[in-house]
Design a protein around this nucleic acid. Structure first.
Lengths: 260, 260
DNA sequence: CAGTTCAATATTTTCGAAAGTTTCGAAAAT
DNA sequence: ATTTTCGAAACTTTCGAAAATATTGAACTG
């Protein structure tokens, strides 16, 4: 599989809002503690760390080769992103998933994705268009993964998929909307992962339709396509992910035992 | 000043969505580390820790009487809430404020506050109404503070103000919307604080108007009033907070020096 | 005098050990 | 047979010391 440059936001993506107050995107930090955070987040999003799973310091220390203090900091971060929970004295666990949650976050996503996309189109630049073309190209080189593809292919697809969707809205001028959009996109990735694992449904190429509408600066059509894109994914998950509707979805192997 | 019971959400506020995935509200946790977090957050919101101020471990350790590890965890949390920033190797600082930021977050607040309020009205219960009446009563006992009121009065008013606005939307069924609404409300509190310190403008009693519209289940009127409430606050800040428009607002005393 | 270098100082980051809780299961009591 | 009590084991939380990194300022150079 061809290597891809790290998703570096193109120059001037947000130059007129350089010093903003909205929460920091941690993905550019290079300290060890952020490294652990990034790895753990990816593991949760890809259900390597499964929903409801207890996160014990002993195990995590081995897995990520770091100290409790560093781990604690990373876990704390994940809690505020909503990917983990904690009860004082009882440690941490991966956040549960549920149909209600997926519906709720998807509804908010529809609003934030369309709002940021409309604004991005309004303020689009040549560099923005270029990154959309480029990130779409990279995404299209990888067919949407099926359940029997190896983990690494699925993960690479996930990265490119995110990079493409980030590119679409990159010139939006509202840092707060962008921040929450990004957080919710990650949340949705957990459910997408489950869908990817279970579904055999073939979807038409929605990404290229969105791309073309965006490049044509047809805001209404682009937003409407993006909204459908999100809603279709929800429906697909409802239909294909076993247990999600009954509230006891399991990931790969039977998850950790739950109380009564 | 009369003491007030801690703002305990009334029973059954969210009973049908007990186990949700949305980020945890940390205000109910009782561990030492959350104590520090709560105190630091309050200090930032009330500009005791001023925008752009460098947060040194030495000083913080004294002020909050705790260890570096615990501090680090709290600071890390504040970063993901957007109240602090960090650059690896260079420690932490309080997030800057700016007019652009206030405008941006207020715009998103209008959407989230009205959306959550409409849903809360739709699903309101007797207990919800009771908490609105009660929290409004407590708020009305304290006149909106002026610049020469002591810090403790301003802080108590801030608490009651938040409790009242939380009560309004408590029965909203969307945990994610509620979570982001709450985060943005806190963000806005920093600007409200600055306004409170500088403004002499007398505002009509908007809170009682909102309360009555909500209790009458007049969703349209309530949302419209709430929207005005937010917008008026922005205008007041723009007019009365010196330096906010020029991008160099200072808090009380000249802030810490900035580079070039 | 402006710009560099380098050592001294200040500050942040990482770590593992000590203290404090919770959980689990065996033994005692009902 | 079920519940309660108690103590050992597992785990979490807190802490401050050690390592790593950034900043400051004095001495030096062009």
């Amino acid at each position: 599989m061809a290597k891809v440059l790290p998703a570096a936001p193109f120059e001037g993506a947000n130059e007129n809002l350089a010093a903003t107050t909205a929460p920091q995107d941690v993905s550019r930090e290079d300290a060890a503690t952020f490294d652990v955070l990034r790895k753990m987040r990816e593991d949760i999003l890809c259900c390597v760390l499964k929903p409801d799973q207890k996160l014990k310091f002993g195990e995590l220390r081995q897995r990520y080769d770091t100290s409790v203090g560093t781990l604690r900091e990373a876990l704390s971060h994940l809690v505020s992103e909503g990917l983990a929970r904690t009860e004082s004295g009882r440690g941490f666990q991966v956040s549960p998933i549920s149909l209600a949650d997926f519906l709720d976050l998807s509804e908010l996503r529809v609003y934030l994705e369309t709002k940021t996309l409309a604004d991005a189109i309004r303020h689009g630049t040549d560099a923005w268009e270029a990154e959309i073309v480029s990130s779409y190209f990279l995404l299209s080189k990888l067919a949407a993964p099926r359940q029997d593809d190896p983990l690494s292919v699925k993960q690479e697809w996930g990265k490119r998929h995110k990079r493409y969707h980030d590119a679409l809205v990159a010139t939006c001028r509202s840092p707060w909307s962008l921040h929450y959009r990004s957080e919710l996109f990650d949340q949705a990735r957990r459910y997408h992962w489950l869908t990817m694992i279970h579904s055999r449904l073939h979807r038409r190429n929605e990404h290229i339709e969105i791309r073309d509408a965006v490049l044509a600066r047809d805001s209404d059509r682009a937003c409407s396509l993006l909204e459908q894109h999100i809603r279709t994914t929800v429906e697909q998950a409802v239909t294909d992910v076993p247990g999600l509707m009954r509230g006891n979805a399991r990931v790969l192997k039977p998850g950790t035992r739950r109380k009564s």
